[in-house]
Design a protein around this nucleic acid. Sequence first.
RNA 1: GGGGGUGUAGCUCAGUUGGUUAGAGCGAUCGCCUGUCACGCGAUAGGUCGAGGGUUCGAGUCCCUUCACUCCCGCCA
Length: 593
Amino acid sequence: MNKYRSHNCNEIRAKDVKKKVILSGWINKKRDHGNLLFIDLRDNYGITQCIIDKENSSFTSLEKTQLETVIKIEGLVVNRSKETINKDIDTGEVEVVIDKFEVLGACRELPMPVFSDQEYSEEIRLKYRFLDLRRKKIHENIILRSKVISFIRNEMNNLGFLEYQTPILTSSSPEGARDFLVPSRLNPGKFYALPQAPQQFKQLIMVSGFDKYFQIAPCFRDEDARADRSPGEFYQLDLEMSFVEQEDVFEVVEKLLISTFKKFSNKKLMFEKFPKISYSEAMLKYGTDKPDLRNPLIIKDVTEIFTREDVSLEIFKKLVISGSKVRCILTKNTKNQPRSFFDGIDKWAKDQGMSGMAYFTFEKEKEILAKGPIGKFFSNKALEELMKKINAKVGDSVFFACNKVKELERITSLAREKIANELKLIDEEYFAFCWIVDYPMFEEDEQTKKIKFSHNPFSMPQGDLDKTNFKKPLEILAYQYDIVCNGIELSSGAIRNHIPELMYKLFSLAGYNKKQVDDKFSGMINALSYGAPPHGGIAPGIDRIVMLLAGEKNIREVTMFPMNQNAQDLMMNAPSEVSDSQLKELNLSLKKK
RNA sequence: GGGGGUGUAGCUCAGUUGGUUAGAGCGAUCGCCUGUCACGCGAUAGGUCGAGGGUUCGAGUCCCUUCACUCCCGCCA
């Protein structure tokens, strides 16, 4: 028998009564009655109540032992009397009468309690992550993460994919996020980069003839953090397939995500077949390319109404003449909402840096009228036309925003979320997946007005390439797609461009000449010219999938050892300074501040 | 880079219009308690009120600067 334990702390049951057992674990909680002491002993698996009384010579020293000390106890399993059974724990019908105990790992005074429902500051949690991780909720989240990853691996294998590793030390890529750089000792003055994603490698794997690849891949991007975005590093389920069209990728991913979400969550799927929404439609209807489809509110363009002569809201009309658009959000049957609801939205909008949100409610006396601050600026006819256009009924309200398209999209997207939350229109018991498709290949850089790749330079343009009008690059769509769940972008992917000549052509539109492309993407462009299969893939974010499954709003709740917002690891003290000799060996010198 | 929020005991927080010696719960230490499971009861220790400056007879509270954490915008092909 193992010297530390005969059972774990979630194993002993009524059938074990009268057995001599050895348990090891952390002191989760003590309840000291002076002559009788209860110890809740905790390990990864659960809790067992242990008991000792004054008759035992170890009583006094056990009584003085700190919480979170690791101890080993030996004792006898006994039944609890009926009225002392604890139904909240699996071992609650029994307890262990301690015969002797031994401290295996002493514990100093705790900087934060482990057994508590309190919330703690991120700072203290991250500094003492090893204590934080002992706490039930996050401990279970991390175990869930492990199980999800293992399930996904298994499913991918079943779907015929094989897992291949790709380099961590690679070359810096010119586009996209900022790279983490690693100096090369053997090549002074030169740097590796950590991969932002194994993008080029997975395409090379296809060129190498492996057909179906996947990897739970670490990705490194030196960009600022968000609640749903770890600074520094995160994981993707990276996958790529040869001889496929967009639909083939969709089929695999839908299968995988549906089985994963059904297995690990009790929430319902809003759609078993994920709806496909074009990028342009999403931007109009939801103001974003990551819409939360649990939210029933839809944005509509009503610019036309404000060109009518019988609408006299001059502030909007002037903006419309100078190129702004007006978009609105209709809320059903809200005529009885208190004034504070409407004004609250308006005030909130102003807090968001907008000029506020105008609103009114459709009512009917003799004829249709608009009740609200801007109602008087609309003629009867204009109101009827508006109602028809946005499918409104008497009793519904409508919120308007007016701005240049890009800002308008941002505003209405946020407003859609805000209003839905206020009206409690979002059912938290659902996962609503969708595909966003038909991304434009290029976009105009706002500052420089130059054409640039809007997503991924390696994506395949849509349509018959002979007929594509390369003179109007902004009109070219790509086989580029995102998958979104509950307003969170889970991944993006594409059918790749495997034709070198076309690649040069597209890069030239974005201002890169042949030599620059050859320099920057030598590995890949070279490979594509030696017989590359048509291929495509996608890369769902593992952290975000687990976050959704765990019902967490912050990615650190499903990450074992995350960095803080400033990309520092407070526990390991990273990043840190290095010695002069290390720098010298790397042929680096630091600028004095 | 920009905007918002927070910062008071080891932890979680309260602290009124600026006014006596800055409080509570948990934790720690000591004492009492043989059926608790957030055990109970009593006592003690524990504070640069994030830091610096200013206004004031007087600042945890008002003003300025700054730091830390966090949320958001930019950024994340």
